[in-house]
């Protein structure tokens, strides 16, 4: 999902770079105010850990394999603000050492993965995990947050690509989002598994990140993230039918429709029985999100037998 240079036009590059720089400046200030200096090496090593963990392969059927992205996991372990800086550092090193992800597109990549991932995923995790007690709630929340970060990041990526005129939105948004709804399931499961593994070795590393009831402003931001998710899933398809070369659409419509379904492996992304319309696509997105929420609860239940309130010994 690392956007290389050359795909984004100057307006998108400037926009995303400015937004990312602004968000980073605010985060740095907040992190500096709230974290002790003891956290600095921890953040550095967490960034290194994310980098190394991304190289571990999780085999998927047919000889392919996936890997962890890690934004939601990081946010669950070190908090949303620190997670933004950690993920940004990972992206900067990937760009400056491996040329993975463009230099001008760094802002867009930071926005898609570090800010949406760390801040959005982290806040989502906090809201969900603070509603329940115990490890089981944390694991479920992290799994769902992991799925959301991947899906939202891919939606943002699609919007940036299309706003640069590289590819039309009605093509790239459904293609990216449907593929990443599947990839996100992998991310959710891996996030949950790693969190459980850490809790089994050093429980206090997980429970110290247990969210306290969160203040109102943060809850508002989290509400905003939730609203953005709904918008992306529900309104995205509508936005994609906005005129974008309308006069050509008439001539190429049949072709484009076929191309779209060929480009998305999840070709039956539409709800059966309904015409493959915008509404059906939106409904499929909403159903997918709800299903994933249920699946996350199930993941927590499966991985943490006898969840409930934490045992006295595991609390610090």
């Amino acid at each position: 999902m690392h956007i290389p240079d050359g795909f984004l036009d100057l307006k998108t590059v400037l926009g995303t770079d400015l937004v990312a720089a602004g968000a980073l400046a605010v985060t740095v200030r907040a992190v500096r105010r709230r974290l002790s200096s003891r956290q600095v090496p921890l953040m550095g090593l967490t960034a290194t850990f994310v980098f190394a963990a991304q190289m571990l392969n999780f085999p998927v059927a047919g000889g392919t394999s996936g890997h962890l992205v890690g934004a939601a996991l990081t946010a669950a372990l070190v908090g949303p603000g620190a997670a933004v800086l950690v993920m940004t550092a990972v992206l900067v090193v990937q760009c400056l050492v491996f040329a993975d992800g463009g230099l001008l597109a760094l802002g867009a990549n930071v926005l898609n993965m570090a800010i949406i991932g760390g801040l959005g995923g982290g806040l989502l995790y906090r809201v969900l995990a603070s509603r329940s007690r115990g490890l089981r709630g944390q694991v479920s929340a992290a799994a769902f947050a992991g799925w959301c970060t991947v899906v939202l990041g891919s939606a943002a990526c699609a919007v940036e690509l299309s706003s640069s005129g590289t590819v039309p939105l009605r093509l790239v948004l459904p293609a990216m989002v449907s593929v990443h709804m599947l990839i996100g399931v992998g991310e959710a499961v891996i996030t949950a598994l790693v969190l459980v593994a850490i809790a089994s070795i050093r429980p206090e590393l997980v429970t110290r990140g247990r969210p306290r009831p969160i203040p109102l402003p943060l809850r508002l931001v989290a509400g905003g993230v939730g609203a953005a998710l709904c918008l992306a899933v529900l309104l995205g398809p509508f936005a994609s039918s906005l005129p974008d070369g309308l006069e050509h659409v008439a001539t190429t419509l049949g072709f484009v429709e076929r191309a779209a379904s060929a480009a998305a492996p999840l070709a039956d992304y539409h709800v059966p029985g309904m015409a493959p319309s915008v509404t059906a696509t939106a409904a499929a997105g909403a159903i997918g999100t709800l299903l994933m929420l249920g699946a996350s609860l199930l993941i927590g239940r499966l991985l943490v037998p006898g969840g409930g309130p934490a045992k006295p010994g595991t609390e610090r």
Partner: peptide, 21 residues
């Protein structure tokens, strides 16, 4: 198994972070 390894890796890095500090 792989997740267990990733978890172990995080535990070791956070322990290392304390020593580095």
């Amino acid at each position: 198994g792989t997740a267990q390894m990733a978890g172990q890796l995080f535990v070791r890095s956070s322990e290392r972070a304390e020593r580095i500090y």
